[in-house]
Simulated scan of single mutants.
Amino acid sequence: MSIKESCRLNITSVAFGGAGVGRADGLVIFVPFTAAGDVADVEIVERRKKFARGRLLGILEPSPQRTEPLCRYFGRCGGCSYQHIAYRHQLNIKQAQVKEAFLKIGKVPEPPVEKVIASPCAYAYRGKAELHTAKTRKGFHLGFMDTSGGRLVDIERCEIMEESINQQISEARSQERFEQSGSDLTFWSNPQGRAGDAVVRTVKSREFLVPRSGFFQANLYLTDAMVDEVCRLAGLEKRASILDACCGSGLFSIFLAQSAERLTGVEIHEKSVQYARENAERNGIQNAKFICADIGDVLSGMAERQDAVDLILLDPPRAGLDPKTLTAICKVKCPDLIYVSCNPATQARDVKYLNECGYVLASLQPLDMFSQTEHIETVGWLRRK
Rank of each mutant, 00 (worst) to 15 (best):
Q90T: 04
A218D: 05
R88Q: 13
K128G: 02
K94H: 00
A129F: 07
K135H: 10
E156W: 08
E114N: 14
T202A: 06
R137K: 14
A86Q: 04
L209V: 08
F144Y: 14
P111L: 04
K138P: 05
G214R: 01
Q90A: 03
S174T: 10
Y87G: 03
S148A: 06
D197N: 02
A86G: 02
R137C: 10
V200D: 04
R194S: 04
R201T: 02
A218M: 05
P112H: 07
S170N: 00
Q168E: 08
D197V: 02
S183L: 04
Q97H: 13
V113T: 12
A122L: 00
N92I: 10
G182F: 02
E156M: 12
T136N: 08
R137T: 14
F178G: 03
R212E: 15
E163R: 13
D154H: 11
Q192H: 13
D146R: 00
Q192N: 12
S213Q: 15
E176N: 15
F178P: 01
S170A: 07
L103S: 12
N92S: 13
A198K: 00
Y87E: 02
R157D: 15
F102N: 04
Q90K: 03
N92K: 14
E171P: 07
D184H: 11
S183H: 04
R194V: 03
P112M: 07
I93T: 08
I165R: 06
L142F: 15
R157S: 15
S205W: 11
E179H: 10
E100P: 05
R137F: 08
E171L: 11
H89G: 06
W188H: 13
K94W: 00
Q180N: 03
G149D: 05
